[in-house]
C-alpha cells in the first residue's frame, strides 16, 4: 500500500512538472505570436501599434515607389507600396532589399507595425520559394473576390 502511494505521489509530481512546463511554454508562445490580418481586418479591428503583426494581400499595380534617403550617413532605399484585398488597402513602407519574388499584382506578406497615421511599417517582406505558391490567406481573399465577381 505504501509503495503504491509513493508511486502515485511520483506520478502526481511528474504531472505537475509537466503542467507547469506546458504553462510556461504557452505563456511564452502567447507573447511571441504574430497575428495575420488582411487590410480590411486591419481597419475593422483597432489594432495595437506596439504589436508585431503580419498583413497579407496583393501588391496593388503601379503602387511601388522607391526613393533614396540618407539615414545616419548611409544612403538607403525607402520603398513604399500598397497592399490590397480588393476592398481595403494599406500603404506599406519598408527599408531594405525586396525579395526576388516580389512583384506588383502578386501576393505578398509583410511583417511589422501599424503606425499612428494608418500606414504600415514593414520590418520584413516575406518571399516565397515558388512563383506559383500563394499563402492560403491570400488564396481565400482571391476566391472570395472571384465569387463576388461571379454574383
Amino acid at each position: 500500500m505504501k509503495k503504491k502511494n509513493k508511486r502515485l505521489l511520483n506520478i502526481l509530481v511528474y504531472l505537475m512538472l509537466f503542467t507547469i512546463g506546458c504553462l510556461i511554454l504557452l505563456m511564452n508562445l502567447r507573447d511571441n505570436l504574430v497575428f495575420f490580418y488582411s487590410p480590411s481586418e486591419v481597419f475593422q479591428k483597432n489594432l495595437d501599434p506596439t504589436n508585431k503583426i503580419r498583413v497579407g494581400g496583393m501588391v496593388k499595380k503601379t503602387s511601388l515607389k522607391k526613393e533614396v534617403k540618407k539615414i545616419k550617413g548611409r544612403s538607403l532605399e525607402q520603398i513604399s507600396f500598397v497592399i490590397t484585398d480588393f476592398n481595403n488597402e494599406i500603404k506599406v513602407s519598408y527599408i531594405g532589399i525586396l525579395p526576388d519574388l516580389f512583384k506588383e499584382g502578386q501576393g505578398v506578406v509583410v511583417e511589422g507595425f501599424i503606425t499612428s497615421n494608418g500606414m504600415f511599417n514593414a520590418k520584413t517582406v516575406l518571399a516565397k520559394h515558388d512563383e506559383n505558391y500563394m499563402p492560403p490567406e491570400i488564396k481565400d481573399i482571391k476566391s472570395i473576390k472571384e465569387n463576388n465577381n461571379g454574383i
Partner: peptide, 26 residues
C-alpha cells in the same frame, strides 16, 4: 507545439497567426 500551434489556432479560434523565431530562441 510552436510549429503546429498556428494550425490549431486557425481551426479552433479562427485566427491566423504565426509563431516566429523569437519563441523558439527564447
Amino acid at each position: 507545439l510552436g510549429t503546429i500551434y498556428p494550425l490549431f489556432s486557425s481551426v479552433l479560434f479562427n485566427s491566423k497567426i504565426s509563431v516566429g523565431a523569437p519563441f523558439f530562441n527564447s
